[in-house]
Design a binder for these strands. Structure first.
Lengths: 202, 202
DNA sequence: GTCTATACACAGATAGAC
DNA sequence: GTCTATCTGTGTATAGAC
């Protein structure tokens, strides 16, 4: 539900978990401080012993989600070889796996980002830009090597990124039948279809 | 901003427009009755002369958005010929054009659907299922004719649908440089890449 | 750190005059 | 249809005891 990169324990962790679940289900403004506190098993005033405000609790979740996601992308790319196909597959797999593994965190990080002030949202926007840049770099390299062919880079990047984000919304209901590695392979196939040179196969 | 299929005028129309703008920007729970009334130039009590509740105003927008979208898909498919390529292009173009033309309505219809009660959301869910079915029918037919090849139909459908939905989020900022018909063509190309038989081109 | 108690603003919705 | 005025519940956040 929350990545192991999170260093929090006791009440603070329960508050983050409760906030995550409730924000994902009802949205930030649809969730009250009292809702979160009750779900965490404390009184509402206790929340302010751990977070300065409701917004700060959300900000922590949003930034954590973006950090975990970006870290996974970088790791995957580092583990991949130099082949553009492999690199794209690695990136898309990490992207999809991240959304399938932490669907609530991904939902909150994406959908409730707009509820943060500009200052609180800034770190997340930086990480988003870096993640998109990673994908653009891999595809651009494939294009220069002649193995990829892309008509509109911006639209292609958005398409690949968005495909993966949607996983957070529908995968949890399919988790019993569909393994994450199968899911990642399917999306890797789709992403390759989107960028590969049309008539390269002899 | 709102489709011409909407039959509303005067204060009622202004309330719908104000609700649409505010829900799109701040979300349903982030918008108050007073916000909407003020933006429409009336007092908050006046809203209840036109809608039974805040939720009913949202429901009207959500259903309208889904109706307009589905109608455009059906129209586009009816105008297309019998060629699977043309049919898919027509469907994806209508899908993308709908999101690029009414980005706020699409955003509210998608993002705030979850804020409606099950009863109020039901009509929208029916229309969503019908729209996905339309896409599945076209692609399934192409597969049976041997011009399309799809590994995982569910994932492919989701991918194509989601690609288009994201347009509502980013197209408004690009509207000055990127014409809608160019956008639709690009997404039609991408959708075809996702489903076409890999090595059909001689 | 967590509690009880509470301040104070604002939410959705209604009553009744015009 | 629209207004003014208001009811009542709930919102975020704080004060101060334990």
């Amino acid at each position: 539900m929350l990545p192991s990169s999170l260093t929090a324990d006791g009440t603070r962790l329960r508050l983050l978990r409760a906030g995550l679940e409730l924000f994902a289900a009802r949205g930030y403004h649809g969730t009250s401080i009292r809702d979160i506190a009750t779900a965490a098993g404390v009184q509402s005033a206790t929340l302010y012993g751990h977070f300065a405000s409701k917004e700060e609790l959300l900000a922590e979740l949003v930034v954590l989600g973006h950090e975990e996601h970006h870290r996974r992308l970088v790791d995957a790319l580092m583990d991949a070889g130099s082949d553009p196909d492999d690199q794209l597959r690695a990136l898309v797999s990490a992207h999809v796996a991240s959304h399938a593994t932490f669907p609530m965190l991904a939902t909150v990080a994406n959908a409730e980002l707009a509820r943060l002030s500009a200052a609180a949202a800034a770190p997340a926007h930086v990480l988003r830009a870096k993640s998109i840049d990673l994908l653009g770099t891999v595809i651009g390299r494939g294009v220069r090597q002649g193995v990829f062919a892309v008509d509109n880079m911006e639209i292609t990047l958005t398409a690949i990124a968005t495909m993966g984000i949607s996983v957070a919304a529908w995968y949890p209901a399919r988790a019993a039948e569909l393994r994450i590695d199968v899911l990642c392979r399917s999306f890797g196939d789709l992403a390759l279809r989107l960028v590969q040179m049309p008539s390269t196969s002899p």
